[in-house]
Simulated assay, not measured.
Amino acid sequence: MSPQPVAETIDAFHRGRFHLVQPHGRGHRAGMDAMLLASLVMQDGAFRVADLGAGAGAAGFAVASRLPDAEVVLVERSPDMAEFARKSLALAENAPFSSRIAVLETDVTLTGRARFAAGLGDYSFHHVIMNPPFNDASDRRTPDILKAEAHAMTENLFESWIRTAGAIAMPGGQLSLIARPQSIAEIIAACGRRFGGVEITAIHPRPGENATRILVTAIKGSRARLQFRAPLLMHDREDSHAFAPLVDDLNNGRVGYARLR
């Protein structure tokens, strides 16, 4: 008996400027995290971006949709999620930029010759972005295999992912990621001497509420000091469900979130 196909939906992002094929009822579905991650990429002229652990490709698609000179490689280990990314590339709605996006089905933690042979060569990208799994391995595991793969951290995850980022980024290239605040020490340690000039922005749901995410950027080879930026409030009023104007602009690809330096 052949396996049942995974139910799927086609979802619009950036107010309809691009669409994504995603699993329905199982697996990880992209949302605000991916859009905020994509907003961290800012560059003029032609450049290359690697989206590590891309899933169905939301962040990479958002970069290509907003920046017309971006060439994006979606790096995803899961065959199922990589196939969703390929389906998204085939959508007519994404034709204006689909030629600038490629899917690379491989493990981002590969090292040395294995990583190079898989298609992730040294000094290949101006930007490396990532939204790594954020649940501790001791957390209750979901029976949904696709979702478990997307959400469950492995030991030394940030070290292995940022090690790859350090290898494939060009000198002066930018690392960008979104994570939970609890991961901040691991992220800084993994950046080590690979990436400096670390800038961290805490994301708070509303005034007076604790941060639920952090945005992190860093520059390969920089020796600039760590900076904590002013926080982002998702909703700038306690009684409102509307996004704050800047967050709404970032979420819909109208603007990018530029570094301080």
Rank of each mutant, 00 (worst) to 15 (best):
F84D: 09
V63H: 01
R193C: 14
V6I: 15
A202K: 07
I187W: 03
T212M: 12
H126R: 13
T164A: 12
I168L: 12
V49M: 02
N94W: 10
R48I: 03
P205W: 08
P207K: 13
F97R: 13
G197F: 00
A150P: 09
R26C: 15
E199I: 04
L40A: 12
M234L: 15
A218Q: 00
P23K: 13
R17S: 06
D239S: 04
G57W: 06
N156C: 09
L91S: 10
D69W: 02
H204W: 02
A169I: 03
R86I: 12
E155I: 04
L232V: 02
A62E: 09
F97A: 08
I219G: 00
A70S: 05
G173T: 00
E155K: 10
G45H: 00
R15A: 06
I188H: 14
D122P: 04
Q227V: 15
V75W: 09
D69P: 00
Q174R: 13
L110Q: 08
D139P: 00
K87G: 11
T154S: 09
A165W: 10
R141C: 13
D107W: 07
G45R: 03
L37A: 11
A185E: 14
A224N: 11
A117G: 06
P205V: 07
F97S: 10
V49L: 05
V103A: 09
L120H: 08
G197R: 01
R140A: 15
R223W: 02
L175R: 10
I203W: 07
I188N: 14
E209I: 09
L226N: 07
C191N: 01
M130S: 15
I145S: 15
A118H: 11
C191Y: 02
R206S: 10
F18W: 03
G173V: 01
T154A: 11
